[in-house]
């Protein structure tokens, strides 16, 4: 953690005191925890809390023994880091807020400061200095728990985003040479990129000639969405596949015309069924009713 405007004396007495007095510190801490836990409705059981406190003090003693007080990221502190990771993870799962987790660590200051006061009773200057060391150390560790908590949350968000992205852009094969791409949700630039890529790869994989883009699930179509759709259609055309846009609701048809979007080059159908029928006719597939004489291309 940062330590500006302060040059620590090379010989801090904090590590020595911590290691020597770790059992009495732990006893004091547990006592104060028990006293305060009565009021709070902590989801952690008392026993677990004591276990955490014990592990923390042990890891702290080991950390100050081998590592420096300034660099909490060094390998000597790896055991402490492991403990903090485990602590914030398990607490997050229980629904404890990161503030509570940090407060738990900060509560260690009380017995520690008490001890320092006793040890350095006659030397106020040394006491001030060691208090500073102790505060910086505990604050650093407390902040680490918050950081770890945040990181694990962000990871979850990222994973869910990816899953959502995958879920919402499936490409299904309807028939020989015919693919369908039911779009659900708003189309933005990054999603269009994924949609386009998925569609083009599916076109190659299934060697499809017609792709039906169904926009029934797209809530609004503005000029940007229309532009993205046209881009997708153009890219598919470059690969040698025709696109049909289906699922255009009456409201959306009106919007498209009011916006002046030119969809003249694209085949559009009101429903997926109509689009499928057209696609079957074009590829020469079997038609459900004898509606038209299928023109054999292949």
């Amino acid at each position: 953690m940062k330590q500006e405007n302060f040059t620590p004396s090379s010989r801090s007495r904090l590590p020595e005191i911590l290691i020597r007095e770790q059992s009495s510190l732990l006893a004091d801490w547990i006592e104060s925890l028990s006293a305060s836990a009565g009021g709070r409705t902590g989801s952690r059981s008392r026993q677990q809390l004591h276990e955490d406190a014990r592990t923390f003090v042990t890891a702290l003693a080991r950390g100050v023994q081998d590592g420096s007080l300034q660099d909490l990221k060094s390998s000597e502190w790896s055991r402490m880091h492991e403990f903090l990771t485990e602590l914030s993870r398990s607490r997050a799962e229980e629904g404890t807020s990161p503030t509570e987790t940090a407060t738990f660590l900060f509560s260690f200051k009380r017995p520690l400061f008490g001890l320092l006061k006793k040890e350095l009773a006659g030397e106020p200057e040394a006491l001030a200095e060691e208090l500073w060391h102790a505060t910086a150390l505990i604050d650093g560790l407390g902040l680490q728990t918050t950081e770890i908590f945040q990181r694990s949350r962000e990871e979850i968000i990222r994973r869910q985003q990816q899953e959502l992205m995958d879920l919402s852009t499936p490409v299904v094969k309807l028939w020989k040479d015919i693919l369908a791409l039911p779009l659900i949700g708003t189309l933005d630039s990054s999603r269009t990129q994924v949609v386009m890529q998925n569609l083009l790869e599916a076109i190659v994989a299934h060697s499809a000639t017609i792709a039906i883009i169904d926009i029934t699930g797209v809530p609004t179509v503005d000029t940007l969405v229309a532009q993205h759709l046209l881009k997708t259609v153009a890219a598919a055309r470059l690969m040698g596949a025709d696109c049909i846009i289906s699922g255009i609701r009456p409201q959306i048809a009106q919007t498209i015309i009011h916006l002046g979007v030119d969809l003249a080059d694209v085949t559009t159908k009101a429903t997926l069924a109509d689009a499928f029928q057209l696609a079957l006719r074009r590829t020469g597939g079997p038609l459900p009713a004898s509606t038209a004489s299928s023109k054999q291309l292949a």
């Binding site: 076109i203 060697s207 881009k231 890219a235 055309r237 470059l238 690969m239 040698g240 291309l297």
Partner: peptide, 30 residues
């Protein structure tokens, strides 16, 4: 045409108007 190429061309605003395209030689011959 490779998918990545198609995407690049569209992003560049080149949709090759007037050129017919096909997925593979068989389709092109058809």
């Amino acid at each position: 045409m490779q998918p990545s190429v198609a995407i690049t061309l569209v992003e560049l605003g080149l949709s090759l108007p007037g050129i017919r395209t096909a997925l593979n030689i068989d389709r092109g011959m058809d």
